[in-house]
């Protein structure tokens, strides 16, 4: 294993686009060559070494590489874009589009992650210890293709539109989520352990969303199907009981919502329809 450490040389005031910070583009390069990689600081073309102190040992294949980032990276965007293997450890917060289009490997963030975390992801694992903002595992505007594979785990809360246009893979949010979790979802699984702000599963056509916490109401475009004691998520049993809803019927969808009965006694009126 080879570890490369990147530390910002100064505090960035404008956005830094650094898709080159990934095991794939570091592999097979010397530290000097890595330093020559191109990044954008606002509208200026820069070299990686102008913005970061780069230390450590390199390796020939991405699998062997671990990139450690520390310091304030809130303005650094698109870290780990399209990475296929290896590890990225972020000791702090990460900026927009972390792990966008990722295909493999792991990314771990000790702090928070900004929006579009793991957007259009196809494989690999992202774990965020803090909170994530909007569009976790989401799609690019208008494309209708969100996350297709891999795993995203957020220990804190997540914002709006978690799993937007998701087609496969698994998202686990251990805290609360904003509205529109699983909007336009086509496949895959989302597990929310906290509460939802509402409108969960809007326009979903397929896939499965499990909500353990509270929700005020279910969209009128869903219909109750069942009351189940437990369900399986990624091979593991999750204890319920759950109300099972099917929808979104306005999109002729057959997605499933598992809503905890315990946390939502106000939804008990649905039981008469089962």
């Amino acid at each position: 294993m080879a570890t490369i450490t990147l530390t910002p040389k100064y505090s960035f005031t404008v956005p830094v686009y650094a898709p080159c910070i990934s095991p794939d583009s570091f592999a097979g390069k010397t530290l000097k060559e890595i330093g020559e990689l191109e990044v954008w600081e606002g509208n200026r073309r820069k070299k990686l070494k102008q913005l970061f102190d780069i230390k450590g040992k390199t390796a020939d294949t991405p699998e062997e590489i671990t990139i450690k980032l520390s310091g304030n990276l809130w303005k650094v965007r698109r870290i780990g874009e399209e990475m296929t293997a290896g590890k990225i450890l972020i000791d702090g917060d990460a900026g927009l589009h972390l792990g966008v289009k990722m295909r493999g490997g792991t990314i771990t963030v000790k702090g928070n992650a900004d929006s579009w975390l793991g957007s259009q992801m196809r494989g690999g694992t992202i774990e965020v210890m803090g909170n994530a903002k909007d569009y976790v595992g989401g799609a690019y505007r208008g494309s209708g293709v969100g996350m297709r594979g891999g795993t995203i785990i957020v220990h804190g809360n997540a914002g709006y539109d978690v799993g937007e246009w998701m087609r496969g893979g698994f998202i686990k949010i251990m805290g609360n989520v904003g509205a529109y979790t699983g909007v336009h979802m086509q496949g895959g699984t989302i597990l929310v352990q906290g509460d939802s702000e509402g409108r969960i599963g809007a326009l979903m056509k397929g896939g499965k969303i499990v909500l353990m916490g509270k929700i005020d109401s279910i969209l009128p475009s869903f219909t109750i199907q069942d009351l189940k004691k437990r369900t399986k998520v990624e091979g593991e049993a999750v204890e319920g009981p759950f109300y099972v809803f099917i929808g979104d019927l306005t999109e002729d969808g057959s997605g499933k919502l598992f809503i905890s009965k315990k946390s939502n006694p106000h939804l008990s009126f649905y039981e008469r329809l089962i």
Binding site: Y140, R141, G142, S143, G144, V145
Partner: peptide, 8 residues
């Protein structure tokens, strides 16, 4: 306007 995904 309809197709940002086409341009990107």
């Amino acid at each position: 306007l309809l197709r940002p995904e086409d341009h990107v």
